[in-house]
């Protein structure tokens, strides 16, 4: 008996190509924008096509990149994290103050900072899964509480300067490429690998797709969701520490708006705000696009006054062509 359900499709390969394009439409769209922008800007501006400038683009993408990875994890599992920006602020300020006022070794403090970020995420996760409350509101409350804490730590002004070695770490480079950029590349790779090649990663997609189906498949839904908030917390803390190293002092306004930028970057990159759909490849594209467009605008001497408007129009257009897919 040769029974098969596959309908005989003429030109099956073509159909497969079409389906691949549709499947990855958002990702292809974002990367073609990146490429177009790269080519156009290189043609117009000689400053832009300097290797050092291109490396700068990558370095400027690190902070948003870290936070967006965490946000992507949370969104894929069906949540949202509004507290990422304030997490990075609290951790950065706390670490800066501790570095200048205690004798604990800076490396230990950095580690403590990352753990602190993880704890904030854990608290978010437990509150959300335990109360069954809307993630947006819980993390919004967390955001408020953290903003207050940050203000308490800094007293409203910049903190003392951080140790020199910390600044040196920011500037360190291997050949022409900054170490920070290399580390970031590794983080992207690991994050992508975990999401696409581990059970935990696949469980995230399952939970975001349908908690009911995930439960039927014996997946621990609460633990999976909580873990994504912990990851977002740790990565936000890392972003805060990186910002600290960049500026050398604990800036009390650091990390503002990161929550919005990361959510919008993920959304543009094709991550569904309803969970379960999208990939980190898209998020990376969106982060590069944001970092690239602000660099291009600087290179083209677009007045800072118009940059926000330009960025806003891009986001608006991206959102307007957004096609929701709530099939099945």
């Amino acid at each position: 008996m040769s029974l098969t359900l596959e309908r005989p499709v003429v030109g099956e390969r073509r159909a497969e190509t079409v389906s691949a394009v549709r499947r990855h439409g958002a990702v292809l769209f974002i990367y073609s924008l990146v490429v177009i922008l790269l080519i156009a800007a290189s043609a117009v501006s000689s400053d832009f096509r300097q290797p050092s400038n291109l490396i700068d683009v990558l370095r400027q993408s690190i902070v948003l990149g870290l936070v967006t990875i965490g946000q992507t994890y949370v969104l894929l599992a069906g949540g949202i994290d509004m507290s990422v920006g304030m997490t990075s602020r609290v951790v950065a300020l706390g670490t800066a103050v501790a570095m200048s006022h205690t004798l604990i070794h800076p490396y230990v403090l950095i580690l403590l900072g990352l753990i602190g970020g993880g704890l904030i995420g854990f608290l978010n996760g437990r509150l959300i899964t335990g109360l069954g409350a809307a993630p947006f509101i819980v993390t919004l409350g967390m955001m408020g509480a953290l903003a207050g804490t940050a203000l308490a730590i800094s007293g409203g002004g910049p903190t003392d300067a951080v140790p020199d070695f910390f600044l040196a770490a920011y500037d360190a480079s291997m050949g022409p490429i900054p170490v920070a950029v290399l580390v970031m590349a590794v983080i992207w790779l690991v994050a992508w690998f975990v999401l696409s090649r581990t059970r935990f990663g696949r469980n995230i997609y399952a939970v975001g797709g349908s908690t009911a189906v995930a439960r039927l498949a014996a997946i621990d839904v609460r633990r999976t969701q909580t873990s994504t908030y912990v990851i977002a917390g740790v990565l936000s803390a890392a972003a805060g520490l990186f910002l600290l190293a960049r500026s050398g002092v604990g800036d009390p306004s650091l990390g503002g708006n990161l929550e919005f930028q990361s959510i919008v970057a993920a959304a543009i990159g094709g991550i569904s705000l309803y969970g379960g759909r999208g990939s980190l490849v898209g998020s990376l594209g969106a982060v590069l696009l944001v970092s690239l467009s602000s660099n291009v605008m600087n290179m083209l001497h677009v007045s800072a006054y118009y940059q926000d408007l330009a960025l806003g129009v891009i986001v608006l257009l991206g959102v307007a062509v957004y096609r929701p897919r709530r099939s099945m």
């Binding site: 997609y205 997946i219 099945m328």
Partner: peptide
């Protein structure tokens, strides 16, 4: 079923086969 996951993942969901390094 989870529409956004592959057929294979849907079939084996929750117990995806892993390699030595705990990778799916």
């Amino acid at each position: 079923l989870l529409p956004e996951l592959s057929v294979g993942e849907n079939i084996l969901l929750g117990a995806l086969p892993r390699d030595r390094w705990k990778t799916v």
